Amino acid sequence: MSQVQGMVSIVGAGPGDPELITVKALKCIQQADVIVYDRLVSEELLLEARPEARRIYCGKAPGLHHMSQQAIHRTLLQQATLGLHVVRLKGGDPLVFGRGGEEALFLEQHGIRYEIVPGVTASIGAAAGADIPLTHRGIATSFACVTASQSADNTNPIRWDLLAGSVDTLAIYMGVSQLDSICSALVQHGRAACTPVALIENGTTTAQRVLTGTLTDIAAIAVQAELRNPALIIVGEVVRVREQLMAMRRQAEMQMGLQERIG
């Protein structure tokens, strides 16, 4: 009798709010024998797993990796070879700075069945949670997702010279520690110093915090506010839409308060 082969579901858990997970991703969690999960995965989602499901933490924080990527590969292979359904659970979307492609290649190389279940990536989720459209008619017709973090073996520099003038909105992941140099590079390569910037810390969660400024002053604002990871940087005129919405909301609240006092 041949051994039953397991499979790996490479699953995106979404940007933070557990309610933003997809139906298919939730079903994967509920059916899993083993869940190999990242640092940014909500504890609420792990509670959806069967009590007997094994949970393996492999989280990565800036400068601190609980488990190397090679060790993650080996873990997925070992568990799937046992005939188990393994869920590789990642924050955001597994194919947007999530190394899902590397894991899929490794599994394919070793003859392990896999599927990729997309998730809401941070740039989409956090921007929406902060009332910032990544595109907006008359303001922005394009956006780019950029990572400021690069692996040691990647010798290709980030082309801030091209990004500064070719894309309306920049959504920059893993860039908090380099915020000052990023802003300087964009200004150096032609982006207006007055371009608005938003920093979204813990996007879509109850701990969300949004800071706004410009390429000139946002780095100082972040230091003063003690901004922490995870945080997304959004650069572009679309940030002004949030400011407009906030102003309209304040005006509506003032009018409501005035009517209550009069009444």
Rank of each mutant, 00 (worst) to 15 (best):
M1D: 11
Q3A: 14
V4Y: 00
G6R: 00
S9G: 01
V11S: 08
P15R: 00
P18C: 09
I21T: 05
K24V: 07
C28R: 11
I29V: 14
Q31M: 07
A32S: 13
A32L: 07
I35Q: 04
V41I: 10
V41W: 02
E43K: 14
E43F: 04
A49T: 05
E52N: 13
E52W: 04
E52Y: 05
R55K: 15
A61Y: 09
H65P: 06
H65W: 09
S68A: 12
Q69V: 09
L77C: 07
G83M: 13
V86M: 05
K90L: 09
D93A: 01
P94R: 04
P94W: 01
L95C: 12
F97A: 10
F97E: 11
G100I: 07
E103M: 02
L105T: 12
E108Q: 14
Q109T: 12
I112Q: 06
Y114N: 11
V117W: 04
V120E: 00
T121S: 14
T121E: 02
A122N: 03
S123N: 09
A126K: 06
A126V: 09
A126D: 03
A127M: 12
G129E: 04
D131A: 15
I132Y: 02
I132H: 05
L134G: 00
L134Q: 06
R137G: 11
I139T: 09
S142W: 12
S142V: 08
D153F: 06
D153N: 12
T155E: 12
P157I: 02
I158N: 08
R159Y: 07
L163S: 08
G165F: 04
L170V: 11
A171E: 06
A171P: 00
M174H: 02
S177E: 15
T195K: 07
P196S: 01
E201F: 08
N202P: 05
N202Y: 10
G203V: 01
T204M: 10
T206K: 12
A207H: 11
D217A: 03
A220S: 14
I221G: 01
I221C: 10
E226G: 07
L227H: 00
A231N: 03
L232E: 08
I233N: 03
I234Y: 04
G236S: 07
E237C: 01
V238S: 07
R240I: 02
V241C: 09
R242N: 07
E243R: 14
E243A: 15
M246Q: 14
R249F: 00
E253H: 09
E253I: 09
E253V: 07
M256A: 15
M256S: 13
G257F: 10
L258A: 13
E260W: 15
